[in-house]
Simulated scan of single mutants.
Amino acid sequence: MAPSFLDPQLSTPITTTKHTADTLATPLPNPSLQVTADHNLKCVNAPVYAPKHGEVLLQIKATGICGSDLHFWKSGRIGELIFMGDCIIGHEAAGVVLKCGDGVSHLRPGDRVAVEPGVPCETCFLCNDGRYNLCEDVQFAGVYPYAGTMQRYKVHPAKWVHKLPDNTTYVEGALLEPLSVVMRGMQVAGLQLGRGAVVCGAGPIGLIALGAARASGAHPIVITDLEPARLAFAKEFVPSCITYQVDKSLDAEGNAKAIRALFGKEEYFAPETVLECTGVESSVCTACYTARRGGAVVVIGVGKAVMNNLPFMHISMAEIDLRFINRYRDTWPPAIACMSGGILDLKKLVSHTFPLEKAADALQLCADSSKPSIKILIVDEVDATLDE
């Protein structure tokens, strides 16, 4: 049974009736889901904060579960990002503005918005150079110690929320974050019209990459995965794609040879670009053998901290351009345009939705490989209001 929602300090439901310096009075609870430092899930009523200068108070209406949420829950870290204590998770989100702090002029209560979860320092040389996705002092929602979006109420800088068009739902707004990941990968990859591409992995990011590659004009496109069911879904999602089930009896070179054969016998037609969306070492190796000589492999997936078996000399001698991305930058406006303009329809990826109060159940399902899912979202149907 999931734990009841209790305030982590008071151990009683929050019923604040007056302001303090930091918190905002509200008659409604703020259910949230935290990952603990000892790899457990904890449901608590989190504090509700008043928006300061340049901030807005949001009701989060939809949050997608990301593979990174599972990584933090199960292992407590992704590379140098380590959970040192309890933290509300979630970063793929959309919601509605409830209150604006001083200095916010472009938003008003009632505006429907998508949340860009990373808040860079805006003062370092990387931020000044426009590469704010590489800022080392970024405050990223759902990464310890910064509270994420699996809660009802969240304060966020107004600069880093984006208005949603009327024809874009909260669920679609939450899908803008994984779409932004893919768009950053495509920026780095430089896909070309009529050039072959491979997508490794038919999980949510891989499927979005498949749809985005198709929209970019890349052709033909092969998508790979271990699971036949995921490949069948990929074929439904983008009928023109070619699917390849990874053969566990073959090594990376063997699978790469079979994938390349799908493009024809001539080296010229071998895939120029591979979007690696799993982060799994064996898949990264396969991707490096799959790309044609002089081609590019863009690693989008999150993997282990150190990979020891990359085919270094093959990458070198074939001049494979092995590239990486770190989140995204300047992607929300074009991602919104893609979604609202009908260029990409990602609603089909949503296989399950859970109410906020059952967020822990949603993560349990997402982590259970015996129960197939594509994209799981946590939604809050409560019509929240502020009674100050």
Score class of each variant (00 low, 15 high):
214 R>D: 05
213 A>C: 14
161 V>L: 09
335 A>M: 08
149 T>M: 10
297 V>W: 02
47 P>W: 10
100 C>K: 13
373 S>Y: 09
241 C>L: 06
237 F>L: 13
199 V>K: 00
105 S>A: 15
220 P>D: 08
330 D>P: 00
182 V>G: 00
11 S>W: 04
327 R>C: 07
67 G>R: 10
348 K>M: 07
190 G>S: 04
10 L>E: 05
219 H>Q: 06
204 P>A: 06
89 I>W: 07
236 E>P: 00
163 K>M: 09
116 E>W: 02
175 L>W: 09
302 V>L: 13
227 E>N: 15
115 V>S: 04
264 G>K: 02
215 A>Y: 06
216 S>E: 04
266 E>Y: 02
112 R>I: 07
341 G>A: 12
80 E>H: 08
23 T>Y: 09
210 L>Y: 03
169 T>C: 08
231 L>C: 10
87 C>N: 14
241 C>K: 11
65 I>C: 11
115 V>F: 03
101 G>L: 03
174 A>C: 08
382 V>D: 02
204 P>F: 01
7 D>P: 00
343 I>S: 11
169 T>L: 04
172 E>Q: 11
92 E>L: 11
60 I>V: 15
260 R>G: 01
264 G>H: 03
253 E>R: 10
287 A>D: 14
40 N>H: 11
67 G>E: 07
343 I>W: 11
6 L>T: 01
221 I>S: 13
48 V>I: 15
36 T>D: 11
65 I>W: 05
76 G>V: 06
335 A>P: 02
